[in-house]
Amino acid sequence: MNTEAPKPWVGSLSPSELLALTHIGIEPAGQVYGISVQAMWTGNLPVTTLEIEGERDGFNQALTECMFLMNAQADELGANGVLECQVKYEIDMALAGPSYITFKLEITGTAVKDRSSISSSRYFATISCGEMIAMRKAGYEPCGLAIGNCSYHQVAWRQQIQVGAFGFWANQEITELTQGPYTAREIASNRMVQMARASGGTGIVGVDVRSSVYPSGSLAGGTMAALCRMLLIGSAIRRNPNADSKVDFKTNLSIGQN
């Protein structure tokens, strides 16, 4: 007979959140995390405008590994949901030596035992425990993480901002460079939507947009190139067809708060 007492769970919940979670049939189970570091050989970046597929594949590999680790830990804890997922993505251009890009993906979350879940599989979400309470009361359920990533190499003609002898003085949009983050966002957005659809979601809330633009060097003929990275992270949700969704919202005036 196993007499070992269960280990205490660890969570970042406040006592009021714990109270409200218990009320809707959710019990915290502990913290889970996944981490993956990938290195990609870049060689020389191309002189054309295109997506850097190596980064895409590396990110997907890192995401798969993180989810595997988190699922394994949630299994151990007997959890069927993971809330408050926080995604940290770091890129290092020098760690693994020249011509290599190293990226680290780290996801942490609070595993929960959800007795009211309508899903047969485990869900992951960035939403907080407090938001989970409001969402369930309103008849919505989390389905899974929705993440889209893209690294796009955009080539632009630097002469565009040096029109004539006094071009430097002028205000003007750099239209070709503007197109880079736009295209990266579109590709990332489509991937995020596909991931949400695959988990059965009908919408995505709380999308966090992270973008950056770095120069990838000056090319021949005064052409300037930039690497545009876009990462979109949100939570896929759907309506619970059996829920009584009418929530009575009241206009509250909180005292002593902003």
């Binding site: 939403i127 919408g203 995505i204 809330v205 709380g206 999308v207």
Partner: peptide, 9 residues
């Protein structure tokens, strides 16, 4: 499918 940066609340 809709996307949104609104929080749940």
């Amino acid at each position: 499918l809709f996307t949104s940066d609104l929080s749940v609340n």
